[in-house]
Design a protein around this nucleic acid. Structure first.
Lengths: 149, 149
DNA sequence: TACAATTTAATTATACACAATTAAAGTTAC
DNA sequence: GTAACTTTAATTGTGTATAATTAAATTGTA
């Protein structure tokens, strides 16, 4: 019998579910950087642009709900995108508390350059299609479950 | 037939695997904060302590390999843990390039307070045991696959 | 022996990320 | 109608993270 203190097994790194989640997210996001640097975007800017490519126009609040980010992260990020000419930021006329983000023509044009990125990064993630689908399903189940706390 | 530009479907947020991975990791780590703040640790400090609770003594390099973190992250983190009295940092005598991190008695004592945390956070992640096992397996498969690039 | 290459950690610069607070504008209740 | 509350975004402060560079020590090789 081992003399290890098994009452602390729950605190071993290899028994954590959160740790591989944390590490895998970090490592996969890192794989985007060589491709994203070619179009002058960071990963967070890229997912914000994804929403804008789809919607063209959105409030900071609603964008934050899509991305699970708050204005403390989004404000400097959107200012950076504005500086690069990919978006404009202006207050809503009907409610001046609301800041509306709109994609520019320049921003829409960026989509053509970005279209190959998902496939390029996807090839780094060496899992089967079934596993990818299962992972996707479980991750959204976790995200859904966390919201109601 | 819809007039949407389906050639850009790969760039829709809901078609990404990386995004829910990124968001779920972030949101789950956030769930640790109320518990970790009671023992004056951040999440990253907590996973570093996990390795130290297990090994008592380790080089910065080896610690970084366990955690997927480099010295740029670990150096300030370990200095913070040293300041709180949980670790000591000293150069190896045999090779002065190597910095050895050792856990203190104070640091070991912290484990007793931390032992309930995995269960407390686990209850926030509302997935079955089977799903948790499957998620764990797929995440480590991804991490393993990324290393050989 | 020398000297180039490697290894290791620290440093610097940039960019998220979140908690807490602030400020402004709207909404509700009385 | 106005005071209290709520909503929205910005600001501030702290703490990760990574890339690139620097510096010191060791290793390998001619």
């Amino acid at each position: 019998m081992k003399t290890d203190e098994t009452c602390y097994d729950s605190l071993r790194l290899e028994n954590q579910l959160c740790f591989p989640l944390y590490a895998a997210a970090k490592e996969v996001v890192k794989k985007y950087n060589p491709f994203l640097s070619e179009i002058a975007l960071t990963y967070t800017q890229y997912i914000a642009m994804m929403v804008l490519w789809d919607k063209q126009e959105i409030s900071v609040k609603e964008l934050g709900e899509y991305l699970f980010l708050d204005s403390g992260t989004l404000t400097p990020l959107l200012k950076a995108l504005e500086k690069k000419g990919f978006v404009t930021r202006q207050r809503s006329e009907s409610d001046e508390r609301v800041l509306i983000v709109k994609i520019t023509d320049e921003g829409m044009k960026l989509r053509e350059k970005a279209v190959l990125i998902p496939q390029q990064v996807g090839s780094c993630v060496k899992i089967d299609e079934d596993e990818a689908n299962e992972l996707y399903r479980i991750l959204y189940k976790i995200l859904g479950g966390l919201k109601n706390d």
